[in-house]
Design a protein around this nucleic acid. Structure first.
Lengths: 190, 190, 190, 190
DNA sequence: AATGAATGAGGCTTCATTCAT
DNA sequence: CATGAATGAAGCCTCATTCAT
């Protein structure tokens, strides 16, 4: 019984643990947020990551810093996925649904304090993706010319928000109906 | 600071103060909720109402009881306004916008714990109003037959939610664009 | 549905209700104490008695006053039961067991603040009963001459206290063993 | 009041204070319990120890954890003292008297929620000590064969309980009389 | 004299944040 | 740089007690 069941007294591994801790914290935060929302006790993240409170504060001086780090990855994924010439607004909605269903807190963050520059930066990247898709779809005649980028952003925000509000077992159904509404609203008008 | 800012030592005004306190609490709650959302400290409501903590608990044994009392009035107003034969789905959206703009927390409540029977009751009344309007509009050919009552409820929830998320000076603009989207989605399909 | 299920708004019955209320309060207190001990919320008694808080305070200005009123009846019963020439120390132990099993709080009271004159008065009456029994038993040669009244009081107090500490389903067993010990200790010594 | 009564603004002394705080908390608890019983405000312990509320909770997540820590020491002492071959049941009673006189709450604890596993563990150790002594005394012919371990446990519990109920200046006297009773009850029967 | 609401102090517990090691 | 304990403010809720009616 030398190692597996021991109560690891958690030796100070020194500076080397830096980047590793950072990653562990982000991963832990993602889990914690998914379970308890953005308002989960900050300390719960440190505990789940198996890292000291102090280290958490060193890496992420406040709540937002951590949340931004977590969801920076979400946006990055979105950018990657929307890259190909063939991706559509519908893909964006689709991806939005998936991310929202996995991680409700993303919505809370994006819709939280939009004035925080760090959040605004994330938002800008998101908007960039949406703008590209919209332009392409309109040129292809698959999206109405009445649509603005703002409309698209509003639609994704509302879709994600609505999914977040519903019980997990309702989400698929809700997502389907809401996307139905937006498809009608996005369609080229006669 | 001669009289209004005094720290009233707060004399026991007796049972007569009961109904008055109840009203004061609801009013205070409406303000507090508007400023800080549904999760504002419960005690802040008592303080703002100028009422003891205990009295708050006597009148409203828990958070939800208070919120329901506050928003019961909103729903009642809605019922009254949607009564006339001439009211439309558009009126509903319109009213939703107004209420949401005044009191963000209404949305939080309705979308909060929908399993709480007290909240469900409020929700049912809301749904009743929406259902009546939808039927009438469909008969009049002003709403598409593809629409279900659920679509309408989702639309109002999303509209209100989106308004709530935005800064006050953005709300009118946001409301306008969102309503534009839903008008397209609601229209009779060719 | 005129009377049975109504939410009696509890009309102020005026002075007439005085004595009746007093009795109701004592009865309610006995129940409440039995369920939750002497430290049960004072207000719970008023509620159970169906009487206003104010009336409770009028009749019994403090916790002790109420408890004393409740257990005055216990002592009176004891006095009555120990009256006959044939009653023995064993009867006293027996009765002690019964009362303790019914109402643990009696023990708490007697063992509470013995300096409170009201409690002391109850105690004196109790002691009087015990003294009479002891004298009689010693004369009859059924109790050892080494015994003092204090011994008897200590024994009953400890017996009651021990019963009170145990789970209800253990009490009978505990009472039996403890009485066995005291019978040996009380017996005339060779 | 130059230095000892100062309102120390309380600087964070760092982790080093940990073990020291733990000891201070146990010591403070012992005092507080002695003065006000096991139900003394939990926070009073923190205050008396000169330690933050949070630290108290960190060291002892609940009331019972603290009480067990406090009285673990009592049992340990008992075990040590009853070790020698020459110790007797009388020594146990004697020691019980001493501990009870110092620390009333020990009795409350052991007799409190016996179902709590932590308390049960303490109780088991206590019982073990008593059982060993009883066996030895019976073999030596100094204790009656009618006695069971349960009798001994009941006797010590009642003795301690009775001491706890009395005013400090009465305790020695009470202890003497009660022990007299139990000596008779424990003696080998003719 | 009864009623029951009002009041607020007090105890509990949870976290955000700091800081010695 | 990491660690994890210390700190205390803040919100929660429950009563004991008072008092207008």
């Amino acid at each position: 019984m030398s190692s597996s069941e021991e109560e690891q007294p958690k030796v100070n591994r020194g500076p080397a643990a830096g980047p590793e801790n950072r990653r562990a914290l982000i991963a832990a935060a993602r889990e914690v947020y998914a379970e308890a929302g953005l308002n989960a006790p900050f300390s719960a993240v440190a505990k789940r990551a198996g890292v000291g409170q102090g280290s958490l504060y060193r890496h992420f001086p406040d709540r937002t810093a951590l949340a931004v780090a977590v969801y920076e990855e979400n946006v990055a994924e979105l950018e990657r996925l929307m890259e190909p010439d063939t991706s559509t607004l519908d893909d964006l909605l689709n991806r939005t649904v998936n991310q929202a269903m996995v991680s409700i807190a993303f919505v809370e963050l994006i819709n939280g304090d939009r004035h925080d520059p760090r959040i605004a930066a994330l938002g800008a990247r998101y908007q960039e993706v949406a703008a590209r898709l919209l332009a392409r779809e309109q040129q292809a005649g698959r999206a109405g010319l009445h649509l603005t980028i703002e409309d698209v952003l509003l639609a994704t925000a509302m879709l994600a928000g609505e999914i977040a509000r519903n019980d997990p077992d309702q989400r698929l159904h809700v997502a389907t109906r809401v996307r139905g509404l937006f498809r009608l609203a996005f369609a080229p008008q006669p």
